[in-house]
Computed example of a mutant assay.
Amino acid sequence: MSIQIDLSSDVAVVTGGGSGIGEGIAHLLAEAGARVAVADLSAEAAKSVAEQITAKGGTAIGVQVDIADEASVRQGLDAVREQLGPVSVLVNNAAAWAIKKFADTSAEDARRVVDVTLLGTINMMRAALPDLVATQGRLVNVASDSARVGEHSMSVYAGAKAGVVAVTKSLAQEVGRKGVRANVVAPGTTVTPGSSGFIEQVGGADKLARAYPLGRLGAPADIAGAVLFLVSPLSTWVTGQVLSVSGGFTML
C-alpha cells in the first residue's frame, strides 16, 4: 500500500522560482504532476528552471514578473492562463531583504523590502484570487520564523513577513467557505544563494547549525516538502496555519 500525491489537474505559480527555495518548490510540484509557472524577476532564471523541469518530463513555463509592479503581475498571470490555464495553486516565495541593523536601515531599504516582500505578495494574491475561488485552489505564502521571533539585522524583513502571516490568516477567514485554503510555511535558515550573506554574517553554516536541534540548516527540499503537503489532499482541513520548518530552532 502506498500514498501518491497527484497534482496533475493543477496549475501552480511559484514566485521567486528561479533559484533557492522557489526553485526547489517548482521542481517538487512538477514532480507531483502540476503544470508549473516559474515566476521570477529574472526572465533568464525563470526560463532555466522551467527548461530543467521539462527536460525531466514535467510541464513548466518561465514567466518574468516583478511582483512589486501590479501591471507586471497582471501580465504575468495572463500569460500563465493563456499557456497553462487558470491558477489553482499559488506559492508566494519571492522576497527582498536588507541585512543591516535597524539603525543603519535607510528609508529606501525599508521601502524596497516592504514593496517586494509584503506588497508584492499582496499583489499576487489579489490578482490570482478570482482563479483560486473558481478552482477552489490553495495558497501558500512562504514567510519566515523571523516573523514570529524576530531576527537580528533583518528587522524590516521580519516585520514584512509578519504582515504576510497576518494577511494570509485574514484571507483564510474570508475565503474558506468558498473552498480556498490559505496557509503559511515559515522556514528557518535555509542554505540558498540568497541566504549566504546572512549565514556568513552570523559566523558561518557550521556555527549556526549548532543552534538547531536537528543539527543542520535547511535545504530547499525541506521547505518544498512542507509546501507540497499544504497544497495536497493530505491537508484538506488545514487553513490559516503557520507551519515552521526550522529543524526545531523555533518551537511555537
Rank of each mutant, 00 (worst) to 15 (best):
L132F: 09
G33I: 08
K178F: 10
V140D: 12
A39C: 14
T250Y: 11
T189E: 09
T121S: 12
A172I: 15
S9P: 00
K169N: 14
A205T: 03
S235W: 10
R210D: 05
G120S: 14
S235E: 07
A182M: 15
S246I: 00
V114A: 05
G17N: 03
P233L: 05
V89R: 01
I199P: 04
A12N: 13
R210A: 12
V114C: 08
V164K: 00
G176N: 13
I5Y: 01
Q241C: 07
S144M: 01
R35E: 03
E31I: 03
Q52D: 04
V14H: 03
G120E: 15
K178E: 11
E174S: 14
F229D: 07
L29V: 03
D131C: 01
Q83C: 02
D6A: 09
G204N: 08
G85K: 05
L139C: 10
R112N: 11
Q136T: 10
L28F: 10
F229L: 11
E70D: 08
P233T: 08
K169R: 15
L77F: 10
I21E: 02
L230Y: 06
I122P: 06
Q241K: 09
V167M: 12
N183H: 12
L230F: 09
G159L: 04
I223Y: 01
K100W: 13
S244D: 14
E200N: 15
E151I: 05
I61V: 06
Q64D: 03
L90S: 12
L77A: 11
L243R: 03
E51V: 02
S42W: 10
A134V: 03
T239L: 13
E31W: 01
Q4C: 15
D66H: 11
L217V: 09
V116G: 03
V231L: 09
S146R: 05
P187G: 03
N183F: 12
T54C: 05
W237A: 15
N141A: 02
A96W: 03
R81D: 02
Q173G: 11
I99P: 02
L234N: 09
N92I: 13
V191K: 00
S195Q: 08
P233W: 04
M124W: 10
P130D: 02
G240E: 14
V164S: 07
L28C: 07
V114P: 04
R74E: 13
T135S: 12
K169M: 14
A50V: 01
S244K: 03
G20Y: 01
V231M: 14
A128Q: 14
W237V: 05
R148D: 05
I199Y: 15
R111M: 09
E82R: 07
S88C: 10
L217M: 05
V175L: 11
A12T: 08
R81C: 05
G24D: 00
V156F: 07
A96D: 14
Q4F: 15
V185G: 07
N183W: 02
T15S: 09
V227M: 06
S232D: 06
V238F: 01
G204S: 07
P213L: 15
A128M: 07
G85S: 13
T135A: 10
A39D: 09
R74L: 08
R74Y: 04
K161T: 12
A98T: 15
S48Y: 02
V11Q: 06
M125R: 00
L139F: 15
S42N: 04
R181L: 12
G58H: 04
I53E: 01
G225T: 00
A128I: 14
G203S: 13
Q173I: 15
L90D: 10
L118Y: 09
D10G: 05
N141S: 12
V89D: 01
T54F: 04
V165C: 06
